[in-house]
Computed example of a mutant assay.
Amino acid sequence: MMSPFYQPSAHPTDRGPSMNSANGRKIYPFHPSAEEIDIEVVAHHLANANRWNGATQHKQFRSRISFSVAEHSVLCAKFMVEHLDRPDLELEALLHDAPEYMTGDMIRPVKHHPTVHAIMKPIEDLADLAFAKRFNLAYPFPPEIKIADGAVCAAEFRQIVPHAADDPSDMLLPETLCAPYEIAMLSAYEAKEYFLDAFEVAMNRRRHFANPPDTL
């Protein structure tokens, strides 16, 4: 599952290359630790990570040109609770893109190309497993996660992604499930607070179900 671009040494303490994080501590994307995941750091990074490779524009406010992974994640969690009636999966929906706090949001045509996917998928899997362990998430993610993600993506595409009227994207098809939310395109700071508030709500709700996180 290790990326072919990184081969660990025989030394047991070697965790591979590291990166800086918002709290000044190192993150090891090739060897993530569940115990080291700091949700405020996650929120900070996701709030600064743009979706759609930055090809976004609010239709009313020209100054709003960035749409964050943090805001997307909150909308997915809302859709999971309000429209799929699965509050038990709210935390999974909120954190389904959380590994992108290490990798950023790679645009789909690049990420899904076989040569890139073969490298990125193991890195994402390691991060997903770390988050699943840290927050006791259902993993592999159940299909409802992809449904919520797709519905929010459709809302984003229709509202904030400039495209031609005859764009053949399946996100414009009438039968495509589309989340009924207005995409606000919050500032990075607002998106961070939005995510952290949603995390607190999801954690409190999680206590009512059979698999609450082992640690808070």
Results as ranks from 00 to 15, higher is better:
112 H>L: 09
185 M>S: 15
34 A>H: 04
11 H>N: 14
147 I>S: 01
24 G>Q: 10
77 A>Q: 01
155 A>P: 03
190 E>T: 03
116 V>M: 09
13 T>W: 08
7 Q>S: 11
121 K>S: 06
171 M>H: 11
199 F>A: 05
131 F>I: 07
103 T>Q: 11
93 A>N: 07
119 I>S: 10
210 A>D: 05
51 R>V: 08
180 P>K: 09
20 N>Y: 14
61 F>W: 10
57 Q>C: 02
79 F>N: 03
137 L>T: 04
10 A>N: 14
82 E>V: 00
188 A>C: 08
208 H>T: 07
194 Y>G: 13
82 E>K: 07
143 P>S: 07
121 K>P: 03
205 R>D: 05
167 D>N: 03
147 I>T: 05
43 A>R: 09
95 L>Q: 01
12 P>W: 15
62 R>M: 13
164 A>G: 12
178 C>F: 06
23 N>P: 06
154 A>F: 08
149 D>Y: 02
141 F>A: 05
102 M>A: 10
97 D>N: 13
22 A>D: 15
24 G>P: 03
13 T>E: 09
191 A>K: 06
17 P>S: 14
119 I>V: 13
77 A>P: 01
38 D>V: 04
148 A>I: 06
6 Y>C: 15
61 F>M: 03
73 S>D: 06
181 Y>V: 00
13 T>K: 11
210 A>Y: 06
164 A>P: 02
168 P>V: 04
39 I>T: 13
166 D>R: 04
76 C>Y: 00
93 A>E: 00
75 L>Q: 05
193 E>Q: 10
199 F>E: 03
208 H>D: 12
178 C>V: 01
127 A>P: 08
185 M>V: 13
82 E>D: 00
58 H>I: 11
144 E>H: 09
6 Y>H: 13
205 R>F: 05
51 R>T: 06
64 R>D: 07
160 I>A: 08
157 F>L: 03
173 L>E: 14
94 L>R: 01
16 G>L: 14
156 E>F: 08
50 N>V: 12
30 F>S: 10
136 N>S: 04
108 R>T: 11
21 S>V: 12
185 M>H: 12
94 L>G: 04
40 E>F: 08
165 A>V: 00
103 T>R: 13
180 P>Q: 07
211 N>M: 09
54 G>F: 14
172 L>C: 05
52 W>N: 03
72 H>V: 07
16 G>S: 11
132 A>H: 03
169 S>Q: 10
211 N>V: 07
9 S>K: 15
11 H>T: 02
119 I>R: 12
124 E>A: 04
175 E>A: 05
85 D>T: 06
77 A>C: 00
203 M>C: 13
17 P>R: 14
177 L>W: 03
52 W>L: 01
197 D>Y: 05
5 F>C: 07
156 E>P: 00
151 A>S: 10
128 D>R: 12
130 A>Q: 13
128 D>H: 15
92 E>K: 12
58 H>N: 15
70 A>P: 01
103 T>W: 15
161 V>Y: 04
164 A>N: 05
137 L>G: 08
48 N>R: 09
61 F>K: 09
163 H>D: 05
168 P>T: 00
63 S>K: 05
159 Q>Y: 01
177 L>R: 11
32 P>E: 15
66 S>D: 15
184 A>N: 05
118 A>Q: 00
167 D>V: 07
175 E>I: 07
94 L>S: 02
